[in-house]
Design a binder for these strands. Sequence first.
DNA 1: ATGTAAGCGAGACGGTACGTCACGTCTTCAC
DNA 2: GTGAAGACGTGACGTACCGTCTCGCTTACAT
Lengths: 206, 206, 206, 206
Amino acid sequence: MADRAREPAGAAVRRPEITAAVLDAVVRELSEVGFGRLSVEGVARRAGVAKSAVYRRWNSKLEMVLELLSGMVSRRISLPDKGSLQADLTMVVDILSTVLEHPMAKNVLPDLLAEAARNPQIETTLHAAIQAAQRDVGDLLVSRAVDRGELPGTVDRELLTDLIAGPLYWRISVMRSHVPPGYADQLSEAIRCAVQAASRTGLAPH
Amino acid sequence: MADRAREPAGAAVRRPEITAAVLDAVVRELSEVGFGRLSVEGVARRAGVAKSAVYRRWNSKLEMVLELLSGMVSRRISLPDKGSLQADLTMVVDILSTVLEHPMAKNVLPDLLAEAARNPQIETTLHAAIQAAQRDVGDLLVSRAVDRGELPGTVDRELLTDLIAGPLYWRISVMRSHVPPGYADQLSEAIRCAVQAASRTGLAPH
Amino acid sequence: MADRAREPAGAAVRRPEITAAVLDAVVRELSEVGFGRLSVEGVARRAGVAKSAVYRRWNSKLEMVLELLSGMVSRRISLPDKGSLQADLTMVVDILSTVLEHPMAKNVLPDLLAEAARNPQIETTLHAAIQAAQRDVGDLLVSRAVDRGELPGTVDRELLTDLIAGPLYWRISVMRSHVPPGYADQLSEAIRCAVQAASRTGLAPH
Amino acid sequence: MADRAREPAGAAVRRPEITAAVLDAVVRELSEVGFGRLSVEGVARRAGVAKSAVYRRWNSKLEMVLELLSGMVSRRISLPDKGSLQADLTMVVDILSTVLEHPMAKNVLPDLLAEAARNPQIETTLHAAIQAAQRDVGDLLVSRAVDRGELPGTVDRELLTDLIAGPLYWRISVMRSHVPPGYADQLSEAIRCAVQAASRTGLAPH
DNA sequence: ATGTAAGCGAGACGGTACGTCACGTCTTCAC
DNA sequence: GTGAAGACGTGACGTACCGTCTCGCTTACAT
């Protein structure tokens, strides 16, 4: 079964290697000059492709970047059960550290977030993706911990994910400093204590 | 008598109302279009001033923004002793929340951080200011808590400040969601437990 | 039975109605936009035909136009003997007027001549055709006039044809004004006197 | 008295050497690629000038070319009295030959004439200029000849100018052949006989 | 009071990118 | 093999900004 549509007949087809080259160039341009100075002209030049080939696919640099975003956030990560809340937390912290340390995330993410403050479409796409990932991870960790009896069901999932993502993003992307050895253990231990304490206080999750 | 006297000789003088109008326009432009799209032309237009008047004062938009930054970060905040680590933490969390919720911080900070990834001068200025503030606050909180016997001297100050700034920045500036009532209490309680736990483990601060 | 049969073998054949439609479209395009703006794309569009069908027949717009030219200039015109040089001249002037007044000549000829200044192939084709026609007509008129004793054999044929074609082309194609009634008579009378005078002077034809 | 306007105040001024460089480039482009392929981009490139500098002066290539035309056709030529119609004619024929043989005229004129067939503004400008020149020359030659008694006042001025301009334009610009030595004498002699004959016939000028 | 150096506005200039259009070439498909 | 469809690279369009620079006018100090 040919993947390629059977439409009109004898129709020329968007060449996928060109699409790929352009999206790749977008990533590189984004990290070098930012979204504000990103230009279709520059992307086309860098991709070794004609401007018209770019405009045939997307009407603006916004659509281009949104498609790139969609492609990037759609990947799911598997999180095996490590046997304890502490170990699960360490695993998540390690993974997130690695992701945020990646040059792409370090260079492109702050830029998209800054642009999201001005562009509702970017904000929506970006936040939806982050929130989905956070909810998945939060639910998984909490349900395992509750099953193990490590946490009560009342635990505030939002606080948990803020405590995981916040410090790492702050340290890596904002302060642009490295995560020292042992930081993951220390942080996950702190998070575990914090959420256990918070869930004990009986403060109703907001 | 004139404050501005003693210049070379027979010199016309930079009109201060123009300087002020331009800096004001820079702030508004920054929050509307970001650093990437910020232009001297746009700033001059918005300030109702000729481009040459701007370029006479700063050689580039970078110098302009750096001067603006320097003026903004030099303010010190007083942190009265609230009597307990928990209360001190709540105070700091409240203050930081208020600062980050301010439209200026919400709109301009992400943009400058994104640009800092590409511009060493911005990175240096910005990070120096943030780190100084963090160190001040961290030292103050920890020394009081150690005096009160709430924390051992071994507590990791960096982890502490990451745990304060990270979740708030993540929630407010990254996710652009509001801080719900009670969040400050919950977060400060969590932070207190976390740092106490971390300092108990005897993990050497990195 | 098929009119187009007997080609190589199992081979599809250039459909003549497409060839005709294209050439027809070339003429219309030429007179509307000129040679400079003439494009295979435009011709194909106007002919309701795919670009590839055109390019399979000619490699460029130049070949296309040259084929068109060759087809047009190959027609011979009969010039009956009118009995006197004056009458013969009037006939030729009338015929040439009619030809030059034709919209096709008025619109396309100046364009091809302009292009000939830049394109040797067009120049060659065009000038060869014009010169052949001029020589034919000149020889015919002169030989009849010499036979009648109206002109000596020394008459300068080039001057004659310049005096016929020049004023008419100037008035019709350059100045784009109409030929008023009586102009043909007046012009042919003038030409007759002129060539008779010129041949009397004994100036050797150059 | 400063030629330069006293307008707004402190206003920057179109630099005349740029205007000149552009117009010069227009001439060269026109003769190389013709009006159809003339592009503002190409002109600016050839003039070593920014496209914006061109568009600041003219809104389109048409305006540009029209200004060029106006500048070119406004020159008046002095025609001293040579003492006889024959000598006057020879002088005019010589001058016109020289003008038409000039590369500018040979390359640019046919192109503008071809474009005039499609563009009323070019047609108007061009024909007005040509007709004015023709009328001036015609009137001058005829009035002198009438004063001398060489021609009756009834002579048809249009026929005269057609007989001068037509053969020369045909030979030089259309056929692109050279004017042989003696051609000017031969032609002027022919023209003199022709107009004398035409004016004798009593044919009313149309 | 006057000379003069600087401030200031206006805007021309060389650039770059915009998003669109048109074109010649080339590939793919249906017939 | 023919013809249709259309993707592709190229290049020009006319516009919009931008940073630089030059130019008059104005201002305010120093003589």
